[in-house]
Design a protein around this nucleic acid. Structure first.
Lengths: 187, 187
DNA sequence: CTCGTGATTGCACTTGGTGCAATCAAGAAT
DNA sequence: ATTCTTGATTGCACCAAGTGCAATCACGAG
């Protein structure tokens, strides 16, 4: 038997997501989350730096997945294509969590506080992706721009996929990338 | 004589910036800001939604300037060029506030809390810029991407200009835009 | 059976932020 | 001159987020 009930962190995440869906992020207090997980407010803050972070605990795994795919990508690919492909693959791995992703987006959509943190997470990912590109010899600024472009595309394609789960996600990514290119076009 | 000392809001901004530079954002309390401005904590929150907002009070004027230039831009320009030009012109208007801009960036650079809010402001600007483009008949998604691209470019060029005030800002913008295009390139 | 260790907890405390009623300083109305 | 109105400021009570620190707990190792 474990010391205490196992996976305190996971229970906090679960309790938080449940409560956020039930009452909305703003109406939920950290004490209530901890309570539902059978823990205390103090313990919550041992596991998460602040109330917002509990919402993004899983998102980090997604980032690692993207970075993994990117590091393993064909070195001959152009930077932007490598990143888009990595995002596409990582995105496909999310398919089994369709319901979870949908709920997550629903909460995010109505909670400015979480949207704010979401921007930080995206910005952080731009930096990591750019770093990985850097190791391929891509100049820093180019790498950052490519990462930004690719990461701008992803949520758009993802939202469309959530709305039409039968759609072909890789195709959506390519279509969206084409639109981005068009937006910069070029005399 | 005015009812009270005039321009409470301005005094709060000034006091806040001074204190942030002296001690750092995290070491300054709202009560201290209000105090230095000869007001109370409660009054501070009458003028600003939260502690972070006082730092961005001026930034809104910049946004309005950009939107103004954009609305007045040559309708024949391609979307991305129109936005870049509008940002260039608005940026040039910032030249007289060089010292202030420098101090602002210095505080921002060491304060994650403010960086987070800065991302929100940028995102908001992407939306407004895209709206103005929309009124020119640019499709929504293209408009958003163009706005994102242009607003990714601006801080890079601005940082370089702050570092080398003698440089030609419009040229920096164009150079940076070219780099962004390169990052998406094409064969 | 004791000891060490890491997770959990209790508690006090600071700060951000809000709601509401009271007050204040001016200009307008009588 | 006095009253009225109006908007800005304030005081106060209160809730929730987040932190530091010491104590406690539940296990496995020795």
């Amino acid at each position: 038997m474990a010391r205490w009930e196992p996976d305190a962190r996971g229970r906090l995440q679960q309790a938080a997501m449940d409560l956020f869906q039930e009452r909305g992020y703003g109406e939920v207090t950290v004490a209530q989350i901890a309570d539902r997980a059978g823990l205390t407010k103090r313990t919550f803050f041992n596991h998460f730096a602040d109330k917002r972070e509990v919402f993004f605990a899983n998102a980090q795994m997604f980032e690692e997945s993207v970075l993994g795919h990117l590091a393993a990508a064909d070195p001959d690919l152009r930077p932007i294509d490598a990143v888009v492909l990595a995002l596409t693959h990582a995105g496909l791995e999310l398919a089994p969590y369709y319901e979870f992703a949908k709920a997550r987006i629903a909460v995010l959509a109505v909670t400015p506080e979480l949207q704010e943190r979401d921007l930080v997470k995206s910005a952080g990912m731009v930096v990591s992706v750019a770093q990985v590109l850097g190791r391929r010899g891509v100049p820093e600024r180019i790498a950052t721009f490519a990462a930004q472009a690719a990461l701008s595309i992803f949520p758009v394609a993802a939202a469309e996929w959530i709305a039409h789960p039968t759609a072909d996600f890789p195709a959506l990514m390519q279509k969206t990338l084409a639109e981005f290119r068009e937006s910069l076009a070029g005399a």
